[in-house]
Design a protein around this nucleic acid. Structure first.
Lengths: 113, 113
DNA sequence: CACTTAATTAAGTGAAGTCTAAAATATACA
DNA sequence: TGTATATTTTAGACTTCACTTAATTAAGTG
């Protein structure tokens, strides 16, 4: 757990991989073959994409006979979300502080400061 | 607004650009020069990174004399967050449905079904 | 206008990413 | 053991990305 967020962002930066994440969210856990048939890319290309998603911690795998069953790892997705919301919160906090300062200044001016 | 999320993810997939987003969250709006001095990369490299962030809608710019003042666009960050939380919610909903099904099946079995 | 400061754009280069085709690995089953 | 199925790994071609240096644009100042 807890890799640098750039790795997760890089994993999501490809349209096919984003499509795989979307597919797994909609359809639940799936074997690599079923994921492969949902896209025009070859089984090999999909396998390589799955490796990137795996290494980013965004999906996990288990074995069932010859199949590899993939599923979403929502914990790591939550980490990425958390990174974004922390920054947005910081920035919005700044905006609020600035608004409060302006309001305070305005009132003091009205008091004849 | 509302570009494909891959563009935003690709913009966040580089450590320098992620650092710029983090810097703007912590320090508020900044001219390109101040951003540049916070990193080891050249002004040119930073300018190119800022262009990528701009085109992804993650930052916005205004002019002040020769300076270009950059700030975070939290609306587009919220869109990215939303994409992730929608998928996580879908997947977790599936898990809940499966747990409910297992529980129901277990009870019926105990009833002698 | 010439000069300085701030930043971007252009051109070229090396590294990283994505794809295809072929070979390799893993598991089941006759 | 030999064969079929499911998937991954490897190797190589092609593309895209991030950087550097040099040139360019934009705006203020003597």
């Amino acid at each position: 757990m807890s890799r640098s967020p750039t790795i997760a962002f890089a994993a999501l930066a490809d349209p096919t991989r984003l499509g795989i994440v979307d597919l797994l969210a909609r359809r639940g856990e799936l074997p690599a073959g079923d994921i492969s048939t949902a896209f025009t890319s070859s089984a090999s290309a999909i396998s390589q994409h799955l490796k990137v998603l795996r290494e980013a911690g965004l999906v996990s795998v288990t074995r069932r006979a010859q199949q590899r069953i993939y599923r979403l790892d929502t914990a790591s997705m939550a980490e990425v979300e958390g990174w974004l919301s922390d920054r947005a919160r910081q920035w919005n906090g700044r905006l609020d502080a600035m608004a409060a300062y302006i309001e305070k200044t305005r009132q003091e001016t009205h008091d004849g400061e």
